[in-house]
């Protein structure tokens, strides 16, 4: 087990290095020149000015040197010259071109919103999806099952932003059934935190749950057909125990796998949800960084965050697998 985790962590670091390096290369060899944008920002850009800016930003020092500086900044404070000179505390992810603030500090500001959204949405994926799937499997072939499968298909075929936007317009903007969506830190006001995120959570949950319901239904049907469920029945177990204990225990394992990856995606920011509901999370932050001129330090940071979550998600899923399934011995 320990060897497994260690091996996976080493692999994770290698992947992270590769990802960050690739992003960096794009940044440097890409078609846009950040120095040009910066230069224009300060009015009347001449060739010399731009030249000087490029030199001070270190563009002439080569890719490897710059990458080295970036990695170094993760561990110790550095100063960054970007027109003016900024100090950047470790772990330093750079200075935003646009806001001139430290990317890592911004990240800390925006992240709680995304995290809140992800946790609630992810929980609802499971809490709505899995029980519905289990019930559909239990009442397989009945009207309930058919309505559920059909409903899942319909919801699945509506584009997410249409769904979210409609819900927002009708449920908060026009009727105020739900309070205005917003992000209030939980430390500030738990009630407001909850109320402000309620609709986004529900929308995330309702749109994500059908996938889980369908998947859970399939997994449950498979599990319920297994020989050991028949043995359980032959022992005299109740239908409820067979369903919610013996079958679900098996069906949940593959569900956890896809959930791990979905959750990683949620943690990396939900661009549509954040924009539509006006929540300032890293999704929106990423979106603004993409507006020309591209804010590369932010972009690099968000790509790295995404990579970290995908890798961690995978690792956690594998570890959970070993916990859930005693046949899997992680060696």
């Amino acid at each position: 087990m320990f060897g497994f985790i260690l091996r996976r962590l080493i692999a994770a670091v290698v992947v992270l290095i590769l990802t960050s390096f690739l992003t960096f290369t794009l940044f440097y060899k890409g078609p846009t020149n950040p120095a040009a944008a910066l230069c224009q920002e300060r009015g009347r850009c001449t060739a010399e000015k731009q030249e000087a800016l490029e030199t001070s930003m270190g563009f002439n020092d080569g890719l490897m040197t710059n990458y080295g500086r970036f990695v170094g900044g993760l561990f110790k404070d550095r100063t960054i010259s970007q027109g003016a000179t900024y100090t950047c505390d470790a772990p330093c992810l750079g200075i935003s071109f646009r806001t001139k603030t430290e990317v890592s500090k911004d990240l800390l500001t925006y992240y709680p919103a995304t995290l809140s959204l992800a946790i609630g949405g992810g929980l609802l994926y499971l809490l709505i999806g899995v029980p519905l799937g289990v019930l559909a499997a239990r009442f397989r072939g009945t009207v309930f099952d058919k309505v559920l499968v059909g409903g899942a298909l319909v919801i699945g075929s509506i584009p997410y932003y249409v769904f979210a936007l409609t819900a927002w317009i009708f449920l908060t903007l026009q009727t105020s059934i739900f309070p205005t969506t917003q992000y209030v830190p939980i430390t500030e006001d738990p009630t407001q935190w909850f109320l402000g995120l309620l609709l986004p959570w529900l929308i995330l949950g309702i749109t994500g749950a059908p996938t889980y319901a369908r998947y859970a239904r399939g997994q449950m049907l498979e599990a319920m057909g297994e020989d050991y469920i028949r043995s359980g029945k032959a022992k005299g177990l109740t239908q409820r125990k067979l369903l919610f204990k013996h079958s679900l225990r098996v069906a949940i394992v593959p569900i956890v796998t896809i959930f791990g990856l979905d959750f990683a995606a949620l943690l990396s920011g939900t661009i549509f949800t954040e924009s539509i509901f006006g929540i300032n999370g890293i999704g929106q932050w990423t979106l603004t960084s993409l507006r020309a001129p591209t804010d590369f330090p932010i972009l690099t940071a968000t790509i790295l965050i995404f990579a970290v979550f995908v890798i961690l998600g995978n690792l956690v899923v594998d570890l959970l697998y070993a916990v859930l399934d005693p046949r899997v011995r992680l060696t």
Binding site: D227, Y228, R230, L324, D325
Partner: peptide, 8 residues
């Protein structure tokens, strides 16, 4: 296959 793989 007749014994549940997840329970001792």
């Amino acid at each position: 296959t007749a014994l549940h793989p997840f329970y001792s």
